[in-house]
Simulated assay, not measured.
Amino acid sequence: MSANALYTDLSGYYDLMCVDINYPAQSNAIRRLHQLFGNGGTTHLDLACGTGPHVRHFIDFGYVSSGLDINQPMLDIAAIRCPEAHFTLQDMSTFEVSVPLDLITCFLYSIHYNDGIAKLAACISTVHHALKPGGVFCFNAVDKDKIDNDLSVKHSAKQEDAVFTFRSGWHYSGQGEKQSLRLSIEKTNAEETQLWDDEHPMVAISFAELSALLTPHFEVHVFEHNYEKIIPWDNGSGNAIFVCVKV
């Protein structure tokens, strides 16, 4: 199955796949960070927004929120979830906005969908251009040097007459700027079991390398990957939240 074919073919199952994600906590944590580091504005864009759950929460917080994604079926669902928002089919590394924004977010490690250092650098530059002075870019990331290829997460959920089992995990060879997100979906009902496997190419980068890309454009603050408490990164964990203020 080709890259992103899983989401194209199974976009209707995406929310089921992400049913264990605490969207309210994630959204509220970034709202709090924006209140601490932002310019007081409320215009917002979510990169790789998928079906729009984070956009929904930011609208409910009082933001003028929008989203972009490279997958039209996802955006169609997002438009139903958030009829107040504007969604566009764009690549996060080359997107355009009509007016500068106060906050740009990228949740669920989706910043890594820039599948090479050059595209990631282009994304950072594009985000910087799209923000107002004092605007904030918030995203989470994984350090390539901390990836354990043997670790994965798994959960099951029921929809109508079928049980779905979802598995995902990072894989990094140990060298180079490419890592992958390996995904599988198993659907079981009374008649049969179906299995989809997919591997999404993503950029592999250390936090030191990522900070070096960000600092020419932003004042960078790094926090532990904890959506309940605001805790500075301990320089050891392999997952972190980056809060980048346009300078």
Rank of each mutant, 00 (worst) to 15 (best):
G52L: 01
G52M: 03
G52T: 05
G52E: 06
G52A: 05
H54I: 02
H54S: 04
V55T: 15
H57C: 12
H57A: 09
H57I: 14
F58Y: 13
F58S: 05
F58E: 08
I59M: 12
I59P: 02
F61G: 00
F61V: 05
G62R: 10
G62I: 10
Y63F: 13
V64D: 15
S65P: 12
S66M: 04
G67H: 11
G67I: 15
L68Y: 15
D69V: 07
I70T: 15
I70Y: 07
I70F: 15
N71K: 05
P73R: 03
P73F: 01
P73A: 05
M74Q: 11
M74K: 03
L75F: 02
L75Q: 05
D76I: 08
D76A: 06
A78I: 06
A79F: 02
A79R: 09
A79W: 01
I80K: 04
I80R: 05
C82D: 07
C82W: 05
E84R: 06
E84W: 02
E84P: 13
E84H: 14
H86S: 08
F87Q: 00
F87V: 03
T88C: 12
T88V: 14
L89Y: 11
L89I: 14
L89S: 10
L89K: 04
Q90R: 10
Q90I: 00
Q90N: 04
Q90V: 06
D91A: 15
M92V: 06
M92L: 11
S93W: 09
S93Y: 10
S93Q: 13
S93T: 09
T94K: 06
T94E: 12
F95S: 01
E96S: 02
E96P: 09
V97T: 02
V97Y: 00
V97E: 00
S98D: 04
S98P: 00
S98K: 08
V99L: 13
V99S: 15
P100R: 12
P100L: 03
P100T: 05
P100D: 02
L101P: 09
L101E: 03
L101M: 04
L101Q: 03
D102Y: 08
L103C: 08
I104A: 04
I104M: 10
T105A: 01
T105R: 02
T105S: 11
C106S: 13
C106K: 05
C106P: 04
F107C: 07
F107Q: 01
F107G: 06
L108R: 13
L108P: 00
L108H: 13
L108F: 11
L108E: 04
Y109M: 01
S110C: 09
S110P: 05
I111Q: 06
I111Y: 01
H112D: 01
H112T: 04
Y113M: 02
Y113G: 00
Y113N: 04
Y113D: 00
N114K: 07
N114M: 08
N114L: 11
D115Y: 00
G116D: 11
G116H: 07
G116V: 05
A118N: 07
A118L: 14
K119Y: 10
L120V: 10
A121D: 03
I124H: 06
I124T: 08
S125E: 08
S125N: 14
T126E: 03
T126G: 14
T126M: 12
V127G: 04
V127W: 09
V127P: 10
H128R: 10
H128F: 12
H129V: 10
L131I: 09
K132P: 08
K132E: 14
P133Y: 15
P133K: 13
G134H: 13
G134P: 14
G134K: 01
G135V: 06
G135T: 02
